[in-house]
Write a protein that binds this DNA or RNA. Sequence first.
DNA 1: TTATAAATTTGTAATCATTACAAACGAGGT
DNA 2: ACCTCGTTTGTAATGATTACAAATTTATAA
Lengths: 145, 145
Amino acid sequence: MNTKKQAEQILRDGHVKPTSIRLEVLSYLLGTDQHPCVDQIYLDLKERIPTLSKASIYNSLHLLVEEHIIQKITIEDEKTRYDADHSTHSHFFCKGCGQVMDIEGLDPNDFKSPLLKEFEVDQIQIYYAGYCPACKVQKEDKTDE
Amino acid sequence: MNTKKQAEQILRDGHVKPTSIRLEVLSYLLGTDQHPCVDQIYLDLKERIPTLSKASIYNSLHLLVEEHIIQKITIEDEKTRYDADHSTHSHFFCKGCGQVMDIEGLDPNDFKSPLLKEFEVDQIQIYYAGYCPACKVQKEDKTDE
DNA sequence: TTATAAATTTGTAATCATTACAAACGAGGT
DNA sequence: ACCTCGTTTGTAATGATTACAAATTTATAA
């Protein structure tokens, strides 16, 4: 559970200088499955690093995305979320609780349309929207109370 | 090729009052495969309707999305695009020319992960990012000239 | 260690898409 | 023609993101 060590290794492997803020941001992302937005990352890290600036979060995130170490999730249009897992997997956005969760169990090769033969595909993002199990039940029970 | 008539029919079928701006917006979307953003729609329609306000474009688009007549495309994070085709199909975003194009030839049923059994899935969006055939060639030829 | 250069981080101001909202407008019914 | 209600408009507010210069830290060389 040493995300700091893990982060340092990933940065070195990617030939990105492991500065303090980069380590903090990547380590934070490695330690959560919540797909946080910039504000969430900022507020949580700010508690331990009072001098932290939001611009630094943006700097680090942009660099990490460019270097393909993390990925952007643009499932909602108001704000961008970030994910330390840059492999091809899909996300579910719950309209009820607003959470974004990982959906596994899909083979990325299923998404290679023959129409893409002539394209260079760098990234595949699959988004589902709807209601997660908990919110679905709650919605159906809205006749009570 | 009468997108105005088509738009009117779709609005009536969806029990949405076919006001002038709604007809203009839906008709515009039906007549293009460019997945335009709000500004594009606004600028193009403004030429024929000088009194047009951007707020009206937002009003109409929001209503049409709510009524499932069109769909939002949030493949880029700076701006939202819109598509009159609300069926499940995928989009390719070209990092070279910035275009968003439709990719057909994928069966939506392939995307039903067993993990989603307990979920209520309202929408599936599949995004590819990379380089389209034209931009791919151009990129590879960058040694010339 | 100290001096110097380079990169990073910070704070603030600017930008830009989107939202909020009140006033003006327009179609349908009386 | 008048009234009413929903639509459209214009403008101001919001909020995420970007730009950028100053302050700070890190790396390098003497």
